[in-house]
């Protein structure tokens, strides 16, 4: 259903292609937010699959490929904990591979039902930039089934929105392309 909505949002944008739009209407912004949220939800889903100990190695690798496609090629993930502000930087694949290799017998990854979408701001080249904030709780259990580690992280994900155009049946069609950029992962004081 969500996929259909996202597709509908794209279709709604089909029309006359303008070189640069000065102002995006409230309604259109909402549609773009939905597109961006769809990508972030896909990422959440992929993180859950990759993190699960029940996912086969080959399947996890296939999902990491899909997750990488959501991001811009140079995107980085910056991770810090409550104990240390020092940010560790990862590329998307090593970050997910690290998650896949965590040494727990069982892992639970829960996503809070909170998705906060910032306003879009334009950067100098005209590309719109936004940030979507989501929250995740991670629990790792040892062989005896005891909780060995738990954290709740705030994930601030950069979203780049660019108006692009493509030719379909001899007609120029405009659409909004959404890609994820750098992601900041910060542990929240949840104890």
């Amino acid at each position: 259903m969500k996929k259909i909505l996202a597709m509908l949002a794209i279709v709604l944008f089909v029309g006359n292609v303008m070189a640069q739009e000065e102002e995006i209407s409230f309604e259109r912004k909402q549609a773009i937010d939905s597109l961006a949220l769809e990508k972030v939800r896909d990422l959440s889903k992929y993180i859950k699959i990759v993190g699960s100990k029940e996912t086969a190695w080959s399947e996890a690798n296939r999902v990491i490929d899909r997750a990488e496609e959501l991001f811009m090629s140079n995107a980085e993930i910056g991770v810090s904990s409550v104990a240390s502000n020092n940010i560790k930087y990862y590329k998307v694949r090593p970050y997910l591979e690290h998650l896949m290799r965590l040494n727990y017998d069982r892992v639970e990854i829960e996503w809070y039902n909170i998705e906060y979408v910032s306003d879009l701001q334009r950067q100098p080249d005209g590309t719109y930039v936004g940030v979507i904030t989501i929250f995740q709780t991670f629990r790792g259990y040892d062989k005896e089934g005891n909780l060995a580690y738990k954290d709740t992280t705030k994930k601030d994900i950069t979203v780049y929105v660019k108006r692009k155009e493509t030719q379909i049946g001899g007609r120029m069609i405009g659409f909004w392309d959404v890609l994820l950029g750098d992601m900041r992962v910060k542990e929240t004081a949840n104890k």
């Binding site: 809070y112 906060y116 910032s118 904030t133 709780t137 709740t152």
Partner: peptide
């Protein structure tokens, strides 16, 4: 936690 996270001012933009 979720009630607190709703209340949290999550971004400077927020």
């Amino acid at each position: 936690d979720e009630a607190n996270l709703y209340a949290m001012t999550k971004q400077m933009g927020q």
